[in-house]
Design a protein around this nucleic acid. Structure first.
Ligand SMILES: [Mn+2]
Ligand SMILES: [Mn+2]
Ligand SMILES: [Mn+2]
Ligand SMILES: [Mn+2]
Lengths: 172, 172
DNA sequence: GCTACAAGTTAACCTTGGCTAAAATACTGT
DNA sequence: ACAGTATTTTAGCCAAGGTTAACTTGTAGC
């Protein structure tokens, strides 16, 4: 079921055999101090806690804007999961005060939900536009952005934005 | 417990009020076709399935290289989780044929585990070096790379690598 | 106004990835 | 050699995010 039964990638871009990497690059390979290292992983676990919620509220906002309402069938279709899964996640979103709805009716965002959706949307757009500006194919850029967006710091976001702005004028 | 109780970010970089965005940029905001959208999310769910395994084998390889052995105490400290958690995850890694060890002894990678570690390490390095080349602070770059690495396509990796190579000579 | 179908919910189940507390094993110093 | 400490494993717990199957509710057509 899992991949990694076979590896085609390595070797193609492995460090060249006669390695001439200067030391300033090589020594960066050492492990970071243990506590800093732990903070890296903690940040990732943290991002994973809100990731799905962000995608949901963002999608709900998009549906409200582009289709007028956010039905859980549409969410299920767009997320590629069952309606039961959507139902359960929506329950969680409601209990977190991000979404409101009456049973068997369309979904809405609370103030808090809208704020989260706006932030997520903005961040998503910055990452997507950056990837396109870098030269990544639109289809691929959308896939990568969907995952990357949740792991990009404020600092990096700003740099991406600057790059896109400067690069944007060049061609596109 | 979860964030998003308060938002400081928005407004700082929201689309400017008197918006002059040309149409070619604006219309990209439309939702992608439903099935393509679903594939985006599926790709993310997919990445999440192997993410932790990749981080583990990568860390084990690093420990073997830099400390001579990979003890689960060290893994627990570096990952910032309890030893019980490491023990359970290692059981899973073994059942997947990525790690081998005798009970109460140090850990080793199988062939398959080493292949996965090498790939993961390489990808991780490309992303990290790219972020640094972009101008992201090392500490931040490490945090972002730890999460981003699992969501970067081959295509994007190659572009990142090229950028780092070209930009690398400029300053640094 | 019924009937049929679409949409939404609920129940029961599974895996992953965390935790704490307790038990088992290994290691170290005297 | 063995006492005490450090390490590893196990057991029992929990939440998130997924599934299918069965049930409920809403809605459109006739
Ligand atoms: Mn998003
Ligand atoms: Mn996303
Ligand atoms: Mn990694
Ligand atoms: Mn990682």
């Amino acid at each position: 079921m899992l991949p990694y039964e076979h590896f085609g990638y390595i070797g193609a871009m492995t460090d060249s055999p006669n390695d001439v990497t200067p030391d300033r690059l090589r020594k960066a390979d050492a492990l970071p101090p243990s506590d800093q290292h732990a903070q890296q992983y903690a940040a990732v676990r943290n991002a994973h806690e809100t990731e799905l919620l962000e995608d949901y509220v963002e999608l709900i906002a998009d549906l409200l804007e582009h289709q007028g309402e956010a039905r859980s069938t549409d969410i299920a279709a767009r997320m590629g999961v069952s309606q039961a899964t959507v139902s359960k996640t929506v329950t969680r979103l409601k209990s977190l005060g991000l979404v409101s709805s009456k049973p068997y009716r369309s979904l809405f965002l609370t103030e808090k939900g809208e704020a989260m959706a706006a932030m997520s949307h903005q961040r998503h757009a910055i990452v997507l536009q950056f990837l396109r500006a870098l030269g990544v194919n639109d289809r691929t850029a959308r896939i990568d952005a969907e995952g990357m967006e949740h792991h990009v710091s404020q600092e990096t976001l700003e740099i991406m934005q600057r790059y896109t702005r400067e690069q944007g004028g060049r061609d596109a």
